[in-house]
Amino acid sequence: MSHMRILVHHERAERWCEALRERLDSSDIEILADDGETLGDILVVWAPPAALFERHRDVKAILNLGAGVDSLLANPALPREVPVLKLRDAGMASHMLDYVRYGLLHFRRDFDRYAVQQSERHWAPHRVVRARHYPVAVLGLGAIGRQIAEALAADGYPVHGFSRSAHTLEGVTCHHEQGEGGRSLKAVLGDETLGLKAVINLLPNTTATRDVLNAEVFAALPDDAVLINPGRGSSVVEEDLLAALEKDQLRGALLDVFQHEPLAGDSPLWQHPKVIITPHAAAPTPVSEAADQLAENIRRVQRGESLTGISLEHGY
């Protein structure tokens, strides 16, 4: 196994360095600052500046400290010939599932309506809607999306999964866009026979998924449907979402991600009575589980194994 220098670029780089040193028989793991001149063989990064790649073009691999590779792929200096490896779940799914379950419970049990009633001092119990009468759509059936969809189905929700290609998941009715029997996202979400109550966005950020949750799609949904978005802000046209909420085309939204982050202080989403905002906190990366996965990928690079990175065309 060849010796290689590993450079880590992250706002909490020392924590990641310590975790990797515990797992790898190597002390040659260093923090890489924005203006760092030290050259390495493997980069472990999160949202690095373009200048970093301009100085490090001959690395063996780039390891992304998260499942989302949006900022990495958008970096104009990213070396296109270098394999890019991302974390595949690494424990994020359980956090994401908590977030989604909370959102579904919040709306299914009418906590949004009770909050309004409290402000008006209005006492009026609502009928309890069971999970089995609350159909949901999970958009994106990647490593995390699959787990979310199957877990919600086990919770008793009628779950409809949507993805680019066909999938088969236990307890989930799967819909796909490409190939035989494929249907568009609008056609699936607007299918009145499904009676969808909630749309959970876990789509990756690709050219095909940007702005797909737009005015046309919101208009096709049932008027009492809600949007839960812990996935990618790039999927949602925020102006169209606001308009749909104002026109009562949507009942409400729980949003963790946005087109631009941090969310601008003058965004009308902050004060909208039908919107709950969290600061990209749905599924933080657990260091221990992620470091295990990173260490194994680093060993593969050191052994000279063939690496299959993310698709630069598809973005995942």
Rank of each mutant, 00 (worst) to 15 (best):
D211H: 15
G315K: 09
K60S: 11
Q293N: 14
G66Y: 01
E261A: 13
G40H: 07
E11V: 13
I228Y: 03
L194Y: 09
E37Q: 15
E192H: 11
E246I: 03
Y157K: 05
E289D: 14
G91N: 11
G156M: 13
I277T: 01
K197C: 02
W123G: 13
L263W: 06
E305R: 09
C17H: 07
R299W: 08
L263M: 00
L32V: 14
A47S: 14
A50Q: 15
C17K: 04
Q302G: 10
A61C: 14
L269E: 05
G66N: 07
H280D: 08
S235M: 06
V69R: 04
P48C: 12
S267T: 02
H56L: 13
A115F: 05
V287H: 09
I228V: 02
D223C: 06
S27Q: 15
L189I: 12
S235V: 09
T173L: 04
Q118Y: 05
D191H: 07
L194W: 05
G66R: 09
H122A: 15
A67P: 00
V69G: 01
V69Q: 01
A154Y: 06
A253H: 01
D248K: 08
T285Q: 04
A61V: 05
P230H: 11
D98C: 09
G66L: 02
G304N: 00
I148F: 06
V236Y: 02
N297R: 11
N205Y: 07
V257G: 01
S27V: 12
G171R: 09
W123P: 14
R88C: 14
N297I: 01
V172Q: 03
L312M: 14
S184Y: 10
V136M: 05
G231V: 00
R108M: 13
P76F: 08
I228W: 00
V172F: 05
L97R: 06
A19P: 03
F258E: 00
E18T: 13
A153Q: 00
V84Y: 05
R12V: 01
